[in-house]
């Protein structure tokens, strides 16, 4: 009982650190670059728009990491999704059908990965590494060109991508004398819905709780009567499913498919989840944390871009620094826990 309390505490502390860190970072951005438009609401909304896909993917990654697994195939899958959408729409397939097709592909891909991890007991890293190779290669098999979605190829998809949901507050006049109303795009709405749904799923459904149980301890989960293999497989299906939705969000932002698309996105997703307090050893984590992890990544990149004089490699380095810090904190918590149990 006592043991559980500690893990709960460390969990909340990690989440708290993440949220505080985000506020500190964002506040710093506002203080340093307030005169450069950082304080406008749109800056924050831009972070959401740019990272909508990443939010969905980080949610899926969190679920997989809860089972002590990892899925590094997400970047490749996003590239494949973008390419499928771009090529499909140019071939005249209706946008809703294409979206359905992409999600279906994601689910099938997840089933295969999940089968290898859950039932054949192969290391998740190796399986998803093969998945990464496969999806990246398939992207090139579909087309080695850079294909774009234009108004001609699909007016509907084009309209989705360009639809601005204007917010009624926080508008301002810019230096050109044009009034700029803050807005979000459809992909942000999708991402936020995914976030809320997954949050409640993890909290209140049997499947959500079984993810935690499997990650906490496979043996005890099995003793509790859970089908560990099936739970693991479902986690990968969920991850690939969410990744496909993320891929659509990503595609709505870039409107093009290419082999180089979303390179390294898997590491962004993993680092967001880790910074958000998800333990890579499984059993502890929360999508809200991952959401803030994504926001922190976005804020760092936004600050560096706003500065305009820093080298573009700084966001990666700073994120890696944060990752280091959080991993060390996690290991300290793990040490406390193992001491308490002993």
């Amino acid at each position: 009982m006592k043991n559980k309390k500690v893990s709960l505490n460390s969990n909340t502390i990690l989440l708290l650190i993440t949220i505080v860190l985000f506020i500190v970072l964002y506040g710093m951005g506002c203080i340093m670059y307030g005169n450069k438009g950082f304080t406008h609401l749109q800056t924050f909304l831009n972070i959401l728009i740019t990272n909508a896909g990443l939010i969905c993917i980080a949610c899926g990654m969190t679920c997989v990491m809860l089972t002590a697994g990892i899925d590094i195939s997400v970047g490749g899958l996003v590239a494949m999704d973008c390419m499928m959408i771009a090529v499909g729409l140019n071939k005249g397939i209706p946008a809703p059908l294409m979206v359905g097709l992409v999600i279906l592909t994601g689910i099938i891909f997840g089933l295969v990965q999940g089968f290898f991890v859950g039932y054949l007991e192969i290391q998740p890293f190796i399986v998803s590494m093969a998945g990464m190779f496969f999806t990246r290669g398939m992207t090139a098999v579909i087309s080695t060109d850079q294909v774009s979605v234009t108004e001609k190829s699909s007016p509907l998809y084009y309209a989705w991508a360009n639809y601005k949901i204007k917010l009624p507050f926080g508008g301002y006049m810019n230096n050109k004398g044009k009034e700029v109303l803050p807005y979000i795009r459809i992909n942000v709405v999708i991402a936020l819905i995914v976030l809320v749904v997954i949050f409640f799923m993890l909290r209140h459904t049997k499947f959500g709780r079984s993810l935690y149980a499997v990650g906490g301890s496979e043996q005890s989960a099995a003793m509790m009567g859970l089908n560990v293999k099936s739970v693991k497989m479902k986690a990968y299906v969920l991850s690939s499913f969410l990744c496909s939705i993320g891929g659509i969000c990503f595609s709505l932002n870039t409107m093009s498919g290419s082999v180089q698309q979303a390179l390294g996105l898997e590491m962004d997703a993993i680092s967001s989840a880790v910074i958000g307090g998800t333990l890579l050893t499984g059993g502890v984590g929360n999508v809200i944390g991952s959401f803030f992890g994504v926001l922190i990544n976005g804020t760092i990149s936004s600050i560096v871009k706003t500065n305009g004089k820093l080298a573009s490699s700084w966001p990666n380095i700073l994120t890696a620094g944060l990752l280091f810090m959080f991993i060390v904190i996690q290991s300290v918590f793990a040490a406390i826990r193992s001491k308490k149990t002993r």
């Binding site: 850079q146 084009y158 991508a161 360009n162 932002n253 409107m255 093009s256």
Partner: peptide, 8 residues
Amino acid sequence: VIEDGWNT
């Protein structure tokens, strides 16, 4: 970097 996808 590429010709496409700049519309938005």
